[in-house]
């Protein structure tokens, strides 16, 4: 079963790699075919679902009760959301950002420690809080990943429109308004998830009396991200931060979230875990 899970992992990586190459080739004008890449994304999602399921069964680990699968599940959730929402927001070519990110996250999950050496104290605490915390955070991260990719697309398109360079990538990216609406929708949904994740995380931290420096740093970054996103949404509602500014703040917020996730995963990697333990 492990062997089959490994084959699925490699196949998923190859499919995401092919989708990334096709998306980028089309976005940069090197290929005119644009139907295959989204289909490869659908195939990648199916393969990744099978890969995660099989691996978790083989390793006797529930994917939402630990950090081992967190990265892969985040990229999986982001791809599912992309595949489901690409028509609604005309986001086909955002796949050029999503596919490489999904591939990176999927590959990174392989180096995110193994369940056997998982030092997450959550394993010692049987509670429904942890699955809720992990699910909402995973969904929140996936939505922020989509918001990040959409913000990148918006910034590129907006810059080209301001510079009046209207060929190539400009023509292949979705309409500016669609990008802005999609970015806002992803940001708002991600913020709801993040809020629930932070609340459950706070309760969980109090229960396990987590006082490790890495936990504190994570909490600080988590709250910082929450404030960044809250500010972005509030200022957008007031009309002050829209378009370009909103995109910059979305990217900043996503980077904060990525640091939280990096710390989360780094704790399970032997040498990094030791390094984090030595933090004052």
């Amino acid at each position: 079963m492990i062997f089959l899970a490994n084959i699925l992992f490699v196949t998923t990586s190859l499919v995401y790699l092919a989708a990334s190459a096709l998306f980028l080739a089309h976005l940069t004008g090197r290929s005119s075919a644009n139907a295959l890449a989204p289909r490869l994304m659908v195939l990648g999602v199916a393969l990744q679902a099978a890969s995660i399921l099989l691996s978790s069964v083989a390793l006797h680990v529930c994917p939402v009760r630990g950090v081992h699968f967190a990265l892969s599940v985040v990229s999986f959730a982001a791809c599912v959301l992309y595949v489901s929402l690409r028509h609604r927001y005309r986001l086909d070519f955002i796949g050029a950002f999503i596919a490489p990110l999904a591939l990176t996250f999927h590959l990174a999950s392989r180096f995110g420690g193994s369940p056997a050496h998982d030092s997450d104290p959550a394993h010692r605490l049987q509670s429904v809080i942890l699955p809720v915390h992990v699910i909402t955070n995973v969904l929140g991260d996936a939505l922020f990943l989509l918001a990040f990719a959409t913000a990148l697309g918006y910034l590129i398109k907006e810059r080209l429109l301001k510079q009046k360079r209207l060929s190539g990538i400009f023509r292949r990216l979705p309409p500016l308004d669609s990008l802005e609406r999609a970015e806002h929708a992803f940001l708002l949904s991600g913020f709801v998830m993040l809020t629930i994740g932070l609340m459950t995380g706070t309760v969980w931290a109090a229960r396990v009396e987590a006082g490790h420096p890495a936990d504190v740093m994570r909490a600080v970054l988590g709250y910082t991200s929450w404030f960044v996103f809250a500010a972005a949404l509030a200022f957008r509602a007031s009309g002050r931060w829209r378009g370009r500014r909103a995109s910059y703040i979305t990217i900043f917020g996503f980077l904060c979230m990525s640091l939280v996730m990096l710390l989360y995963v780094a704790r399970t990697i032997g040498p990094l875990a030791s390094l984090l333990m030595e933090l004052p």
Partner: peptide, 8 residues
């Protein structure tokens, strides 16, 4: 064309 590329 430009209007469509901005507003859809």
């Amino acid at each position: 064309d430009l209007a469509q590329r901005i507003f859809g």
